[in-house]
């Protein structure tokens, strides 16, 4: 099994706050990796480091190395713009653009200079199908994305990310604002996508991590406490802190 990411001694600081502490981890290729932990444990900061979204936060600083398929993502030859096209991101709250459904999905392709109407049509349909949204929206692609329900908006955001054909999908608590039906649809979708791309999902829903993931990492106060195969970790956690968190003693 090859690794998508190899992360060595990653530290992230915001002003005085040491948010991620000396984390080293290998994230496997085309599987679902879940990152769990209590709020403020650094799991979102860790996720944002992987497509360099942290660079956008003023006064953030990083040390350590992140290799993506063996290549250092911070080396001068690597542009963060290209990197983010290869490593897509879905956020906690659905954040569609105030454009039509079609224009939302086509956005990433258009900024890369794709103009051809037929190709755009085809790529938009394909992305919406992959995000399991096509049947619900195929007759109203020209409508505003804001007319969709929260769960549909989140699937639209996934479709928008998939449109540029990323190799990795980073999801930051994508179901936090969704109802159980919406959550179930997203989980179903992620399980289908798992075969094609690497998925890393931050969640504080332990059941979700257990249902979805193949490997799981547990963060506590900025440190990676334990990382391993999901079944093993949920059944026989090696570390007491992990056991307490999984049992719901804190968090």
């Amino acid at each position: 099994m090859s690794n998508a990411f190899e992360i060595k001694n990653l530290n992230i600081y915001y002003n005085g706050l040491h948010a991620v502490k000396n984390v080293s981890i290998d994230i496997p290729h085309t599987l679902i990796t879940a990152i769990i932990g209590a709020s403020g444990c650094g799991k979102s900061s860790f996720l944002r480091a992987m497509n360099r979204m942290n660079d956008l936060i003023p006064n953030s600083r990083r040390t350590g190395e992140i290799l993506f398929h063996g290549v250092d993502i911070h080396q001068p030859m690597m542009s963060e713009v290209t990197l983010r096209r290869r490593i897509g991101m879905v956020f906690q709250k659905p954040n569609p653009f105030p454009f039509s459904i079609f224009d939302n999905v086509a956005y990433g392709l258009r900024i890369q200079g794709m103009r051809d109407k037929a190709t755009l049509d085809q790529r938009v349909e394909e992305s919406l199908r992959r995000a399991a949204l096509w049947p619900e929206v195929k007759d109203r692609l020209k409508q505003s994305a804001f007319a969709l329900s929260g769960g549909q908006q989140q699937r639209l955001c996934i479709a928008r990310t998939l449109a540029v054909d990323p190799e990795v999908l980073l999801l930051d608590e994508p179901c936090a604002s969704l109802d159980p039906t919406g959550t179930a649809r997203i989980e179903e979708l992620l399980q289908k996508l798992e075969k094609e791309i690497t998925i890393i999902i931050v969640t504080h829903n332990m059941q979700q991590a257990k249902r979805l993931s193949d490997t799981v990492g547990f963060f506590h106060l900025g440190e990676l406490v334990e990382f391993g195969r999901t079944e093993e970790m949920f059944e026989h956690p090696r570390i007491q802190l992990t056991r307490d968190y999984i049992m719901g003693h804190f968090g």
Binding site: M53, V81, N95, Y107, I111, R160, V164
Partner: peptide, 27 residues
């Protein structure tokens, strides 16, 4: 214009110019 839209645009590999003129200004 909500910050989350800028993040979405950057996350899709937009340059700063594209974020400004293709997302924030139309929004």
């Amino acid at each position: 214009v909500p910050h989350s839209l800028r993040m979405a645009a950057y996350g899709l590999g937009s340059t700063r110019l594209q974020v400004a003129f293709r997302v924030v200004l139309p929004s």
